[in-house]
Simulated assay, not measured.
Amino acid sequence: MLGKVIDMRHALVTGAILGLTLLAGSAAAQSVDAALARGTLKVCIVEGAPYALKTPRGQWIGHEIDVAERLASDFGLAPEFVPVTYADMMTRLAGRDCDLIAASLAIEPDRLRQAWFTTPYGESDVGVVTTRKDAAALADLDKAGVTIGAVTGTPAADLAKARLPLATIEVFPDLIAAERALDGGAVAGLAYKAPIPRLIAVKAPAKYVVVGGDPLARTADAFAVRKGDTDMLNLLNGWVEARRRDGFLARTDAYWLTTLDWMERLKPRAAPAAAK
């Protein structure tokens, strides 16, 4: 009798585990299947040059936009962009507001607890741009009385605290607010992933300089998908490998991350002359 009870309990536990596994597999498949059914790929993006920004006519352009558009096109889908912030992107992903996050997202331990990451499709240096022209290296900013800005939810915020323990690290909700603080003199520098520090310095070379020497860190950047979304993870991993081998990712990096040619696309176009 006792043996039958144990066998029954074992069967119930096994059945429950199998049921949960099937449910998880079903939920994972829904992400890819739902995208194919509706004909669109919902992509969470974080606005900020040169990754995702709008032209004067309201068109999305940027490194991640090109990547997401090619990804969607390769599977016969139209991209649907969902703007999010670093602070809420994981919540939005888990809430199915999007199928994946494409934001040159650094693979970090804290993020690994919240989502699954694909094979990296890029790397980024995290550096510092400053108004202090005497800052030849990070050590020159690691002083009491020096305030460095960073954006909440980014690796730069934690890296700056670790690498510049004597300085004060002030965290801002987004890059726009952080740049405004830098421009207004509220902070002496801004820690962020490349190429943002260089872009800021290029726009006002008389005011800003990128701190030389080793960067705060070098990150591996990847797509993020919902935990358990095996189908989407496998699809993206295969796509990254294919686009790496055909040179698409390298060409996209070269255009958006090493040149400023794309800035021409942000200039307002002159209205056509009225007919006489």
Results as ranks from 00 to 15, higher is better:
residue 140 D to P: 04
residue 139 A to Y: 09
residue 125 D to P: 01
residue 108 E to P: 00
residue 138 L to R: 03
residue 137 A to P: 01
residue 143 K to V: 05
residue 132 R to D: 06
residue 95 G to E: 14
residue 103 A to L: 03
residue 117 F to V: 07
residue 94 A to K: 14
residue 100 L to D: 07
residue 138 L to I: 11
residue 95 G to D: 15
residue 68 A to Y: 08
residue 126 V to P: 01
residue 75 F to M: 11
residue 122 G to N: 13
residue 117 F to H: 14
residue 89 M to F: 00
residue 102 A to G: 00
residue 103 A to S: 14
residue 129 V to R: 06
residue 105 L to T: 09
residue 123 E to K: 15
residue 105 L to W: 11
residue 134 D to Q: 09
residue 87 A to V: 13
residue 134 D to N: 13
residue 126 V to Y: 14
residue 111 R to G: 12
residue 127 G to S: 13
residue 86 Y to V: 00
residue 110 D to E: 14
residue 92 R to E: 15
residue 122 G to I: 11
residue 133 K to E: 04
residue 86 Y to S: 08
residue 140 D to S: 10
residue 110 D to R: 13
residue 74 D to L: 03
residue 134 D to F: 13
residue 82 V to P: 01
residue 122 G to L: 12
residue 143 K to N: 12
residue 66 D to P: 05
residue 94 A to D: 13
residue 129 V to D: 03
residue 74 D to N: 15
residue 123 E to R: 14
residue 139 A to M: 01
residue 106 A to D: 12
residue 112 L to D: 10
residue 142 D to P: 06
residue 91 T to E: 13
residue 76 G to F: 13
residue 75 F to Y: 15
residue 138 L to E: 05
residue 97 D to T: 04
residue 66 D to V: 02
residue 105 L to A: 06
residue 98 C to H: 02
residue 75 F to D: 05
residue 136 A to C: 00
residue 120 P to L: 10
residue 70 R to E: 11
residue 70 R to H: 10
residue 76 G to D: 13
residue 139 A to L: 04
residue 117 F to R: 06
residue 120 P to W: 00
residue 91 T to S: 09
residue 134 D to L: 05
residue 131 T to F: 00
residue 116 W to M: 11
residue 135 A to P: 08
residue 84 V to D: 05
residue 78 A to R: 15
residue 130 T to S: 14
residue 98 C to R: 10
residue 94 A to E: 15
residue 111 R to L: 15
residue 74 D to K: 11
residue 109 P to C: 12
residue 106 A to N: 05
residue 78 A to N: 04
residue 134 D to A: 09
residue 111 R to S: 10
